[in-house]
Structures are given as structure tokens and as C-alpha cells.
């Protein structure tokens, strides 16, 4: 379980935060923006004018601006302070795609926090490697509302991509101050290998022992329809039924399991590079899933029996992504 981060507030937070797991306190920084500094100059000029003309209303206006400036700082600070930030499950992507790290921002105050800006702030090295700009994400939070946003980050290699430092900042309401804070979330995105390779499937294996009808429906004998459930092969959808405006149905077969594959490390042994091998296996898995095969995977350190379905596919792909990577957990 990842921890949540609460952005620190000057006043001690009330006990109600204690209800949600453990919270890491994180400091909020604040500095005037360039317009803020410019206003300081303007205010000083106005003060000179007020003193020179001894004009009370000019004094008042100047002091009003000064004090709005100060109050604005509090408002900007308050936009961030007290926010509770936590990560959520990261959807895996293929290498080269944009990873989206979901971040949940929870505003527990009775005041809205408009125009929060989140941007990935990677180390120099990662930035150089990515060669792509990190797009900021804008979030508007109403009072007592939470929202999930995805922070995009480019991926290059397969493996585990950790979420870099994220900067959350706000200039609301007047743009005279910018408050920001750094968020370190222990999130990582599983990056599957990029599907590639031109090899054909290895030879199918014979049916296994009885008692597995449930998982290997995929072949010949038509055995009726059932409702579609997420994870069913698209190939088996009864498109004709759909055309008749019936609900999404899936054709069911009772087969003998001749379409069973075992994708093994040896099958790609001829490829020169580990990454190329993984890419080939990745492509095969996607193909097999798409074509309704029942497939298993066998690579050093990981083996899975033949099966089918989105979950199975994801497990296979994750195994490829984690190949050769030692992870702490």
C-alpha cells in the first residue's frame, strides 16, 4: 500500500486526517511570481506619490494593495496546504507509449482549490533521456472534493518506470504568488516490451488432461451464446446478434483444445538480444490472445500454464516486463 502525502499547513491539522492511512507531511513553499515583484515596484512608486502629494486616498489605495498582496499570499498557500495526495494503481503501457500515473488529489477543506498545476519534474538525466517535454496537468477542485488525474510521462525501455518527483503548484487567486510542493509517490508503471518481431508461432501443443473445459473455450463446436464479459475474446463476439440490436453476446464453443500454445524462451533463443526476445514474445502473446489461442508462457524464472483472457495476458506481459529486474518488494 502506498502512503498518502498531506501538504503541510501552518496550523496543526485536526485529528480527522488520522482516519486515512498514514500521511506524510510535505512542506509547501511560496514565493512571489514575476508579476508579484512587478506589483511591489508599482506599489513603492504609488507610495512615493502618496507621500509627495500627502494624499490620503493614495495612501489608502497603496496600503490596500499592499495588504491584498499579503492576503493573496495566504490564499495561494491555502490552495495547496492541507491537500492529501495519494497514488493509485498505474495502468501498464508498452514501451514507447506515454505512461499515465494516476494521482488522487483530495481537498478536504470547505473551500475550492482552482487551477492546481501538476507536472512531472524528473531528474536531469531522465529528462535528457526522455527527449520529450513533460506536459503539465491542470486540476480544479471544488470544496471537499477529490479528483484523480493522470500525470503523463514518456517511456523508453521496458521494465518498471518509477514516478519521478511531481511538482504541484498554484498561482490562484491573483497570480502574484506561486506556491509549490514536491510530491514523491512510490508509484511505478509496468512497461511492457514493445511488441516486435517477425517470427511465426511455435508449434501448438496437444490438449492437456480433462477438467479444463472452462478455460479453453475457443474452438470448434458451437455451444450457444452468453453475455459478454470484459475479458472475452473479441473474436468470439456474435457480431450478427449485435447487428440485430441485441446485447453484446459471445459465442461459446466446446472444443478439444487443439489451439494450445506454449511460448517458451527456447523459441526465441535465436534472437541476439534479450530485449528483442522479449519483444517477440510480447508480440506473440498479443497475437495469440487476439486470435483466441490458449497459450502459456515459459521464461527463466517464470512459468504460467496455458490459459486465455485479459487477466492471463496481462500476467504474461508483466512477467516479460519484469524479466531480469530485481525489485525490492
Amino acid at each position: 500500500m502506498t502512503e498518502s502525502i498531506v501538504l503541510e499547513r501552518l496550523s496543526p491539522a485536526r485529528g480527522d486526517h488520522a482516519s486515512v492511512s498514514s500521511l506524510i507531511r510535505q512542506r509547501v513553499y511560496i514565493l512571489p511570481t514575476r508579476p508579484g515583484f512587478l506589483l511591489c515596484v508599482a506599489m513603492f512608486t504609488m507610495l512615493l506619490g502618496a507621500v509627495n502629494y500627502n494624499n490620503s486616498m493614495a495612501y489608502i489605495l497603496t496600503f490596500l494593495l499592499v495588504s491584498v498582496f499579503m492576503v493573496c499570499m495566504l490564499h495561494t498557500y491555502r490552495n495547496l496546504a492541507g491537500l492529501v495526495i495519494s497514488g493509485a494503481k498505474v495502468k501498464p503501457v508498452f514501451a514507447g507509449e506515454m505512461a499515465g500515473f494516476p494521482v488522487i488529489i483530495d481537498n478536504r477543506d470547505g473551500t475550492p482549490c482552482p487551477a492546481l498545476k501538476l507536472v512531472c519534474h524528473p531528474s536531469r538525466k531522465a529528462k535528457r533521456a526522455a527527449q520529450q517535454s513533460y506536459q503539465p496537468v491542470m486540476v480544479n477542485l471544488q470544496a471537499s472534493q477529490w479528483q484523480q488525474v493522470e500525470i503523463p510521462a514518456p517511456t523508453i525501455n521496458r521494465g518498471l518506470l518509477p514516478l519521478e518527483r511531481v511538482i504541484i503548484s498554484s498561482c490562484f487567486p491573483l497570480g502574484l504568488f506561486r506556491a509549490w510542493s514536491y510530491i514523491h509517490l512510490e508509484e511505478q508503471c509496468v512497461v511492457y516490451p514493445k511488441p516486435a518481431g517477425i517470427d511465426q508461432f511455435p508449434a501448438p501443443v496437444a490438449a492437456q488432461e480433462q477438467g479444463q473445459e472452462g478455460v479453453k473455450s475457443g474452438a470448434n463446436d458451437f455451444a450457444g451464446f452468453r453475455q459478454y464479459h470484459p475479458g472475452d475474446s473479441i473474436r468470439n463476439i456474435a457480431w450478427k446478434a449485435l447487428a440485430r440490436e441485441q446485447p453484446l453476446l459471445v459465442k461459446r464453443f466446446s472444443g478439444d483444445g487443439s489451439h494450445t500454445l506454449m511460448l517458451a524462451w527456447e523459441d526465441v533463443g535465436h534472437l541476439p538480444d534479450i530485449e528483442l526476445r522479449l519483444s517477440q514474445l510480447c508480440r506473440w502473446i498479443l497475437l495469440a490472445e487476439n486470435q483466441g489461442w490458449i497459450y502459456g508462457l515459459e521464461i527463466p524464472g517464470f512459468q504460467i500454464d496455458p490459459a486465455q483472457g485479459t487477466l492471463h495476458k496481462n500476467r504474461c506481459l508483466e512477467a516479460l516486463a519484469r524479466y531480469g529486474i530485481h525489485h525490492a518488494d
Partner: peptide, 11 residues
Amino acid sequence: ITVWLLRQYPP
């Protein structure tokens, strides 16, 4: 004002 502004605003 700071204390008053930064107090928690419970819903």
C-alpha cells in the same frame, strides 16, 4: 488573519 484563514474549513 493568517490563523483565521488557514484554519481548517470543515465542510
